[in-house]
């Protein structure tokens, strides 16, 4: 049984248009994927496609005006708002993208201890700082005084302090230098080896491929394909969805050919397949219905033409 199972998740917001009307903007819709204990799943998609909101939805920290539908199961139980609140910061942990997610006016040690109370919290925090090579002077620093690598280790240690079973890391490797990226990735690998499930949200397909077991390809608010990492090879012939193939081929070490067009926005989604306007396999059927998700060769895909 998977540790976390997301089924048909949709997140939308209300927005005013011109005049007095308002409309629903769907940021995430009909999204499904699952993750097992000890597994790393990378959710890969281009920047600004609403991937972060997926993390927020699982943790239950979406803005108040968000509408959520679909179900999330955690450890066999339905992840209701009250269960989310109970588990946040304990079994569920979140590693944000940057130091901006730390309170600028509070010393980092206090933030790492977070909601943890009691004498033990100091001991645990000190142990973790030691483990991550953070000297004792770092404890009293404010976020703006941290270097990039220190900041990353601080952010990771907030997840470790509670021995989380499921860690969601949002863009943990943007613009960091190679050593820091490597360090961050190896820390996730270490979590997984200890039986923690790691969900790794990124636009950086290279680093995703280097650590993940499964890749979920995120396009226009949904997962179009979930594939084992081994399928990303050659010219992408083992991949299932045309978007995944195009994404793979667009990498510099492959054909380095960009995909023409751009992702549809959340308020003007096509009626049928989301990728149809940019796909060269499009048929009339593609334009009519959103393809159902189906299991294919040890993976998942949303494309009627996939084999």
């Amino acid at each position: 049984m998977p540790l976390v199972e997301v089924d048909d998740l949709s997140v939308s917001f209300k927005q005013y248009t011109k005049g007095f009307k308002h409309k629903e903007v769907k940021v995430i819709h009909n999204l499904s994927f699952s993750i097992n204990a000890g597994e790393i799943v990378a959710v890969v998609g281009s920047s600004g496609s609403g991937k972060s909101l997926l993390a927020h939805a699982i943790l239950g920290i979406l803005p108040r005006n968000a509408n959520v539908s679909g179900t999330i199961h955690y450890d066999g139980k339905e992840l209701t708002p009250s269960l989310q609140e109970k588990l946040r910061g304990k079994e569920l942990a979140f590693v944000p993208q940057s130091v901006n997610f730390l309170n600028p006016l509070m010393e980092v040690e206090k933030q790492v201890r977070g909601a943890l109370k009691g004498k033990d919290s100091f001991k645990t925090q000190k142990e973790i700082f030691e483990k991550y090579n953070l000297s004792t002077d770092v404890e009293k620093l404010y976020p703006f005084q941290l270097s990039g690598g220190m900041a990353r280790r601080i952010l990771v240690s907030t997840a470790v302090i509670n021995k989380a079973k499921f860690i969601i890391a949002d863009e943990p490797t943007p613009g960091l230098d190679q050593t820091v990226v490597k360090e961050a990735l190896s820390s996730f690998k270490a979590f997984a080896d200890n039986g923690t499930a790691v969900m790794f949200i990124t636009h950086d397909i290279q680093s995703a491929l280097s650590v993940a077991d499964k890749i979920a390809v995120f396009y226009a608010g949904t997962t179009v394909e979930v594939a084992p990492v081994e399928d990303f090879t050659g010219s992408g012939e083992r991949l299932r969805h045309p978007y995944s193939k195009a994404l793979w081929r667009a990498l510099p070490q492959n054909e380095f050919r960009p995909i023409p067009g751009s992702q549809p926005k959340g308020d003007e989604l096509p009626r049928g397949c989301l990728f149809a306007p940019r796909c060269d396999m499009t048929t009339t059927e593609c334009l009519e219905h959103l393809p159902e998700k189906r299991v294919l060769r040890n993976g998942m895909v949303r494309c009627i033409h996939a084999t």
Partner: peptide, 11 residues
């Protein structure tokens, strides 16, 4: 963002 993260940490 920092309150969002604080909530994610269970505060």
């Amino acid at each position: 963002d920092y309150v969002l993260f604080a909530r994610a940490r269970g505060e």
